[in-house]
């Protein structure tokens, strides 16, 4: 038997697509279907008329594509008392996200820098408390914060919600920057000190220019995190600063009479659009953010 084989065994073994390989791709495709179906259903539902939705063909493509549901979701769906669609929520979310991301990333960068290069006494303990803070359930902290913000009169304002996002974003952003700075050579810092540079000079001139990629990771992480927040927006947003997620939930739950599934799904897509766009455009950075910020859960 070996003899006949010997005569031909040369070079690459002829490839047969093995059953295991088929199984592997089969499983991958099934899994991909499971993960993609909801997105697909959400999109096709939003493009159908309500009559067509009622036919109950969940997976069917729309017979006539219409963006009416999108327009209604954006500008005239009822979010509780008012019927202005989800657009005011979009504006609020943009405001909250932009301001919170800028402040929280700057704070986190400074913290991480101070912790990794200027190890003053108690820095480790401080950092330990902060990391623990990343795990504390919001529920254990929210009420005292409400009391505090009422006292100083910023409860329900943009400042109030931004402050809360900065507080809850601080542990993870600090952690990301600290780990990044800790990976930089200490000599860099020492050389700058010998050259006579001070705390802020080193930070602005040397550290920040080197931190562009990690800053991008932090910005992406915070942007998706804050955009996707519901609880903090609900509690601290007051009447004027309700983010998109809260208004989205209001649209779906406050439907008088007929439930407009297509409008609901359109509103859902509109709310999901920003983080999805960030995800698909930033791929690598997003995954890095996950690895770095996995603590956020």
């Amino acid at each position: 038997m070996t003899q006949t084989q010997n005569a031909v065994a040369r070079g690459r073994k002829p490839k047969k697509m093995s059953p295991a390989r088929y199984g592997l791709y089969g499983l991958l495709v099934i899994s991909a279907t499971f993960f993609l179906t909801p997105l697909y259903v959400m999109i096709v539902t939003s493009l159908k008329t309500l009559d067509e939705v009622r036919l109950g063909k969940l997976f069917a493509l729309p017979e006539t594509v219409t963006f009416d549901a999108w327009i209604k979701a954006w500008s005239s769906a009822c979010t509780g008392v008012t019927c202005e669609g989800i657009s005011p929520g979009f504006v609020n979310s943009v405001q909250i996200t932009v301001v919170s991301v800028i402040i929280s990333v700057m704070l986190g960068a400074v913290n991480g820098y101070a912790l990794s290069f200027w190890r003053y006494r108690g820095a480790n303990v401080l950092f330990g408390i902060l990391v623990m803070g990343a795990f504390v359930p919001f529920q254990a902290v929210i009420y005292p914060l409400i009391v505090f913000q009422r006292e100083i009169g910023i409860f329900g304002s943009l400042a109030g919600i931004v402050m809360v996002h900065c507080i809850f974003g601080m542990p993870i952003i600090t952690l990301i920057f600290r780990n990044y700075f800790a990976s930089l050579p200490e000599e860099l810092f020492k050389a700058a000190r010998i050259d006579g540079a001070g705390f802020w000079q080193i930070f602005v001139r040397i550290m920040m220019p080197m931190s562009v990629p990690i800053t991008a990771v932090a910005v992406i992480l915070q942007t998706t995190g804050i955009w996707n927040d519901y609880l903090l927006g609900l509690v601290f947003g007051g009447r004027d600063n309700q983010p998109m997620t809260v208004q989205l939930n209001n649209i779906v739950t406050t439907s008088y009479g007929v439930r407009e599934y297509n409008v609901n799904m359109a509103a859902t897509i509109l709310t999901a659009a920003v983080p999805l766009a960030i995800y698909f455009l930033s791929g690598r950075f997003f995954v890095k953010g996950i690895a770095a910020g996995a603590v956020k859960g």
């Binding site: 070996t2 084989q5 065994a9 040369r10 070079g11 073994k13």
Partner: peptide, 8 residues
Amino acid sequence: ISGRNVTW
């Protein structure tokens, strides 16, 4: 190897 074609 050891007198056997083991290529595959």
